[in-house]
Amino acid sequence: MTSVSLLSEVNDVWFEKWRCDDAECKYQMIKCGTAVADNLSGKNQITQSSLVSEIAKARQHIQKSLKNEVIRGTANQVDNVLISRLEAVEFENKDLRIVTQDLQAVVKKLESRIAALEKEDKAENIQENKKNEDDDDDDIDLFGSDDEDEEAERIKEERLKSYQERKAKKPSVVAKSNVILDVKPWDDETDMAELEKCVRSISMDGLLWGTGKLLPVGYGIKKLTISCVVEDEKVSIEELEEKITAFEDLIQSVDIAAFNKI
């Protein structure tokens, strides 16, 4: 190939074809209505059509609506939580109000009972003081003779003696205790019925036996748990334990399970 033929081929190359393609594309877009030609400052510019702008506005409106829905849903959730908490507080306040009313009623009853007792004690004290004053007035004779003084002294002594006798006849409060004893046998072959019979055979002034029952201890062994009421001044618990353990063939030991004053 000669140099002349190479030069002719180079001259046939179209270096500005892209400009023609670009112009053709713009022309087709204007023809389809997707773009309009606008000559601004000597330059051909492509602007968005009204359809594209409407689509963009629609997208913005949808995004804004979605955000509003999310905010509205969150606000509704917060409102529901607050409403449930307020309902719970109102329910608790209602219960507290009922309890407070019950307590107030109980306090009023107690106050009325205390007032009645105080009134009774006050009336009894007034009657006692009045009786003592009458007794003192009867014993005093400012214008009496010596014989009258002796008679008054004798009457006073008789009244004092009578008062002491009446006081002695009044039933005094007896101190008692409720005792529960655990009586343990030697082994599982011990006759527990005979053991309980021996325990109940103990008789002391001021001692009253109560109910008894058998409770398991372990390895087939059972203990006798028996209750009794004793007068503190008459019955010694130590002495009672000694009398129970005196049945040494049947009884191994005695323990105090409970001791309560009555």
Rank of each mutant, 00 (worst) to 15 (best):
C198P: 01
G144Y: 01
Q164L: 14
M192Q: 13
S162V: 04
E238N: 11
A175I: 11
Y219N: 14
E158Q: 11
A193H: 09
E242V: 07
R154D: 06
L195P: 02
G206C: 03
K243M: 13
C198N: 15
V230K: 03
I221D: 07
Y219Q: 13
K223V: 07
D232Q: 12
I226R: 08
L207I: 12
L160T: 10
V230R: 02
V179P: 06
L195N: 05
A175E: 13
C228N: 10
E148N: 07
E148D: 12
S145Q: 02
E151L: 11
C198Y: 14
E165N: 11
I226N: 06
R154Q: 07
K197N: 08
D188Q: 09
E151V: 07
D149Q: 05
S172N: 05
A168K: 15
L240G: 02
E165C: 10
Y163M: 09
R166T: 02
L160H: 07
I202P: 00
L181E: 03
K223P: 00
W209D: 09
S177K: 15
E241C: 15
K170R: 15
W186G: 04
E239Y: 05
A152Q: 12
A193L: 10
E157F: 14
K161M: 10
D187A: 07
K234S: 08
E248Q: 03
L240I: 12
V183Q: 02
T245S: 09
E238T: 13
K161V: 09
R166Y: 06
E165W: 05
I237G: 01
E231M: 08
K197L: 06
T211H: 09
S172F: 04
Q252V: 08
K243S: 10
R200H: 06
V235C: 11
L240C: 05
K170M: 14
R166L: 13
G210R: 01
E189V: 07
E242S: 10
R159A: 09
D187C: 03
E241H: 06
K243V: 04
T225L: 15
L208S: 13
K169N: 14
L208A: 11
K234I: 04
E196R: 14
W209I: 10
E165I: 15
S201Q: 12
G212E: 03
E248A: 05
E231T: 12
D249I: 06
D232G: 00
I237T: 04
V199K: 00
S203L: 07
V199P: 02
S145I: 03
D187Y: 04
D205V: 03
K176N: 10
V199A: 03
I251P: 03
E148C: 04
D188V: 02
K167M: 12
K169G: 13
I237F: 02
K167N: 12
K234D: 05
L208R: 12
E238Y: 11
E151Q: 12
L160M: 04
K213M: 03
K213L: 03
L214W: 10
E242G: 08
T211P: 00
D249Y: 08
V217D: 12
Y163K: 14
Y163A: 14
